[in-house]
Deep mutational scan, measured.
Amino acid sequence: KLPPGWEKRMFRSNGTVYYFNHITNASQFERPSG
């Protein structure tokens, strides 16, 4: 389970998975720990 605010997303163009935090508007490719 991801830390609060984080969700898994995917770029439609190339299928790359990334993680987005809707609380802080942060995004990263590494899976957030917590």
Rank of each mutant, 00 (worst) to 15 (best):
V17K: 03
F20Q: 03
F20P: 04
F29A: 10
Y19N: 00
E30A: 04
T24W: 05
N25G: 15
S33W: 10
R12P: 15
S33R: 13
Y19V: 00
W6V: 05
G34T: 13
F29L: 11
G5C: 10
T16E: 10
W6N: 01
Y18Q: 03
A26T: 14
N25H: 13
S33Y: 13
S27K: 10
S33P: 12
I23M: 08
G5W: 04
F29M: 08
P3E: 01
K1T: 12
S33I: 12
N25S: 08
Y18E: 03
P32Y: 03
S13F: 12
H22N: 12
R31Y: 10
R12K: 14
K8Q: 13
R31A: 08
T24S: 04
P32K: 00
R9L: 05
P3C: 04
T24A: 02
R12G: 15
Q28H: 08
P32S: 01
S27P: 01
N25L: 12
P32D: 02
T24G: 06
Y18H: 02
I23V: 10
F20N: 00
G34D: 12
Q28D: 01
Y18L: 03
Q28G: 07
R31I: 11
N14L: 09
L2I: 06
S13E: 14
I23Y: 09
S27F: 15
H22V: 15
P3Y: 01
S27Q: 09
P32V: 01
P3S: 01
G34N: 11
M10S: 07
T24I: 04
Y19M: 02
S13P: 14
G34I: 12
N21E: 03
F11S: 13
S27D: 04
Y18G: 03
S13M: 05
K8I: 14
I23F: 13
T24E: 03
L2S: 06
P3H: 02
N25Y: 08
G5F: 05
P3F: 00
E7P: 01
K1L: 13
G34Y: 14
Y19W: 09
Y18W: 05
K8H: 04
N14R: 09
F11T: 12
F20E: 02
A26W: 06
Y18P: 01
W6R: 00
N25F: 10
P3N: 01
H22K: 12
L2P: 15
E7V: 11
S33V: 12
F11W: 11
P4I: 08
R12H: 11
S33E: 13
N21V: 06
S13L: 08
T24Y: 04
P3Q: 03
A26F: 06
F11N: 15
S33G: 12
K1H: 13
Y19R: 00
F11L: 15
G5E: 05
Y19G: 00
G34S: 11
R12Q: 14
G15N: 08
P3T: 01
E30K: 06
K1G: 12
R31K: 10
K8P: 03
H22T: 15
E30H: 09
E7I: 07
A26K: 12
Y19T: 00
F29Q: 09
F29T: 09
F11G: 09
Y19D: 02
F29P: 03
S33T: 13
R9I: 07
H22D: 06
G5Q: 04
Q28P: 05
R9N: 05
F11D: 15
R31Q: 08
P32N: 00
A26V: 15
S33N: 13
N25P: 01
F20H: 10
R12V: 14
L2M: 06
T24Q: 08
G34P: 12
Q28S: 09
Q28Y: 04
H22G: 08
L2Q: 00
P3M: 00
I23H: 08
N21T: 05
N25W: 07
M10N: 08
T24L: 04
G34V: 11
I23P: 03
Y19K: 00
N21R: 02
A26G: 07
H22R: 10
P4M: 08
R12M: 14
Q28F: 04
S33A: 09
K1D: 15
S27G: 04
N25M: 14
F11V: 12
V17E: 09
L2R: 02
E7L: 05
Q28K: 09
F29H: 07
M10K: 09
A26M: 14
A26I: 14
E7S: 06
N25K: 13
G34M: 12
F29Y: 10
G5A: 04
W6G: 02
E30Q: 11
K8W: 03
T16V: 13
R12A: 15
I23W: 06
T16N: 10
P3K: 02
R9M: 09
R9D: 07
V17Y: 11
